[in-house]
Design a protein around this nucleic acid. Sequence first.
DNA 1: CTGATTATCGTCAAGCAGACGACTAAGATC
DNA 2: GATCTTAGTCGTCTGCTTGACGATAATCAG
Lengths: 244, 244
Amino acid sequence: MSPYDPSAFPPFAVTVDLVVLTVRHHALCALSVRRGEPPFQGRWALPGGFVRADEDLSQAAARELAEETGLRAQSGAHLEQLATYGDPQRDPRMRVVSVAHLVLAPDLPAPRAGGDARSARWAPVGTLLGEDGPDHPGDAPPLAFDHARILADGVERARSKIEYSSLATAFCPPEFTVGELRRVYEAVWGVALDPRNFHRKVTGTVGFLVPTGGTTTRQGGRPAQLFRAGGATLLNPPMLRPEV
Amino acid sequence: MSPYDPSAFPPFAVTVDLVVLTVRHHALCALSVRRGEPPFQGRWALPGGFVRADEDLSQAAARELAEETGLRAQSGAHLEQLATYGDPQRDPRMRVVSVAHLVLAPDLPAPRAGGDARSARWAPVGTLLGEDGPDHPGDAPPLAFDHARILADGVERARSKIEYSSLATAFCPPEFTVGELRRVYEAVWGVALDPRNFHRKVTGTVGFLVPTGGTTTRQGGRPAQLFRAGGATLLNPPMLRPEV
DNA sequence: CTGATTATCGTCAAGCAGACGACTAAGATC
DNA sequence: GATCTTAGTCGTCTGCTTGACGATAATCAG
């Protein structure tokens, strides 16, 4: 077949799916919606939808995000393309290629259902991925389509990306304390970090944090300085994730 | 619009494009093909083609790779998905979404032209991207479509990935010396590395290199030990890329 | 006031990286 | 064959970063 022959190409549907992650109650959570129609009716899935004829992929992702959560991409949240999934059998009805996007957002109010989703919820990623955890015995029904794989890829991307970038601040409100940022790392990585070494590391990395001058005691204990995210996007040297 | 409504979706063509990188003559080079038909007739472009109705995206990429270069993905070369490009205007004829893939390969014999490509060649990435270099004044015509952007993204992915993975060995023949591996890093990063510190680093990282017992003098000078790539894929701590 | 909690500063030792000296073993040249 | 050139390999030293952890500070609950 001749490349780029516009008269002979197989028909594809192109969608965007969203892995929307946040940290709530010290746990990494993902947004999922309940499917209102077959296939996989009643099962949980990632939010998403068709790319329209005149919009770019990132525009489609931002539009779906706004429709499902009311979240604007520029309001502190981070949106990036994750990967594309195109197994011929991934949708039983037709050939669908899905361009998955990853969104990192601060803790949000309860999600609002939109489109054909009968409801939407935040759930810990361990529950959605069917891992046995302290909360859930491993009996949760798996996500629809290949969404468990997509979610797992998104979680892994988030886990590795906060190592060498300042993206962990995307999980925080506009102003936050060093302790709050540390609890983000602990929730995403599922480990405990030494508060003293963490404090030394983040305050010693130029461009990572900018003090706002204010303090807060919302976590209890001694008042903590408030910071905003600095201009730096790459952390060098990176934040080291403890083994195991 | 209802997500996943199979009766109403805009028509898309889905293609794979390939960023095939290798190191030749101490320079990072990419494979490009000359377009034999409009649009951009006669201009250089990345190899690629339509995804067939029954094949997965990675299968399509491996097939195109074999068609354009005769290279089998399992023969030491590395293939991974890079990113997806779907600007509505990126192809003047119709809506085309392209799933770009990145291939890292050892230095290959001259590429063979296939499909509608009148010819294919290896070219230094600086030349293809229109950067002024010692070889070329910046008068090279830019790549067709948005392929310059795709190539730049692929080069950046390769540059960062050899930092924290053992992927640089994908640029080497099955057996190679520490010096040859160092010249790969130097070509990809465009820097000079200290041979003594590099040797200490790579031979001291467990699982990176496995000695084969043989030696070679193909680079001149004292005979060097031959190695194969070890089982490790992640480098911890990473190879540090010198500043600027 | 006392204890609990969280934030922040400091100290010390181990590990790693960059700079670089020294030596080895081959081919090339005289 | 002596010497030069080239590349590979082994060591040393110094400074920086990290991990472990002691000590102090500032708030709230009782």
